[in-house]
Simulated scan of single mutants.
Amino acid sequence: MTKDNGILQDAFNRKHTYLRISLTERCNLRCSYCMPENGIQLSPKSHLMTYEEIFNIAKIFVKHGVSKIRLTGGEPLIRKDIPVILEKLSSLPVELSITSNAIIIDKFINTLKANGIKSLNISLDSLNPEKFKQITRRDQFEKVYHNILLLIKEGFKVKINVVLIKGFNDNEIVDFINLTKELPITVRFIEFMPFDGNKWDIAKMISFKTIIECANNMFTESQIQRIQDAPNDTSKNFKVKGFKGSFAIITSVTNPFCDSCNRLRLTANGQLKNCLFSASESDLLTPLRQGKPIESIIEKAVTAKFKMRGGMDTLEKLQNPELHNNNRSMISIGG
């Protein structure tokens, strides 16, 4: 173990090379699994990281071994200084990518290209305009779908993130897979996960087994090909033979990928979360503003990372509201 990546290696020998940075707690959608019905208490603007602070913290992580940075929100593109943030971060020796809802992404095509963005994750939970409006509380399906097609046309690698919820969009699994027939995209089905205020219930969750059974009922097993997963991949990847795209399943609940986790998260107000499910956070912004070094805080946070799901290592613990309700809402963690 070298000194340069020592502070990002945890007690289970996992090296953390992937940093997800939330740029804002605000969003132009109101997805029910992400944002509580009554919204959230937003951090005061003075408590949020400036673009200089984002860059300075990112530089420290890159110095110690981070090779990939993903920008999230809320919706990262609604931040007014996003062009400056992209320009600053693209100067670092990292793979830079974004997660977006794609509503306004058409305005940033040239900016994304100029800063080396090649891959984007786009949230889309229904191919039905009315259901899209129901889950997002906004009537923007046509805009989002048009912009997905635009991104593909402009040569970006597009992944579509679909949070499956029983009784809402689980009857669209085959429709989403069929979307990959003519489009060179990856559709990623994500198990519904518990966060503060999203009314999670394990009975609403669609498991890996159910998704595969649904696919097998539509396509023969010989048509569905298992694709080699990338190192540290969160998803199990598949492809229908002859289709241009592929589909994947992210099993955070039923079959977590914690053993190979290499991810850390930085919230918009400068708190380091060592796990999506962890209720604990480490303040990096305050000491940074005080001119103090933050490496020791990062090292302590990484070392304290649990082996699995923030300590919720069984489904019984995951179903205990007292454990996951102490966490933030997804909107304020960063998607």
Results as ranks from 00 to 15, higher is better:
121 N>C: 07
246 S>N: 10
51 Y>V: 12
57 I>Q: 02
52 E>T: 05
226 R>T: 14
327 N>M: 07
34 C>K: 01
134 Q>L: 14
74 G>S: 11
194 P>D: 09
308 M>E: 15
94 V>N: 02
324 H>T: 04
223 Q>T: 01
8 L>Q: 12
22 S>A: 15
292 K>Q: 13
268 A>V: 01
19 L>R: 04
286 T>A: 07
195 F>Y: 04
52 E>D: 14
21 I>W: 01
255 N>R: 15
187 V>M: 00
98 I>L: 13
27 C>M: 06
71 L>K: 09
3 K>H: 13
128 N>F: 05
188 R>M: 00
278 S>A: 15
138 R>C: 11
54 I>P: 03
56 N>L: 12
272 L>V: 10
280 S>E: 15
314 T>F: 06
143 K>Y: 01
72 T>C: 09
136 T>D: 01
311 G>N: 02
157 K>M: 06
174 V>L: 14
249 I>N: 11
129 P>N: 11
199 K>A: 11
273 K>V: 02
11 A>P: 02
122 I>L: 13
193 M>P: 01
17 T>Y: 06
145 Y>V: 10
73 G>D: 03
286 T>I: 08
177 I>T: 12
44 P>F: 11
309 R>D: 12
69 I>C: 10
37 E>H: 05
101 N>T: 11
37 E>I: 09
198 N>I: 02
334 G>M: 02
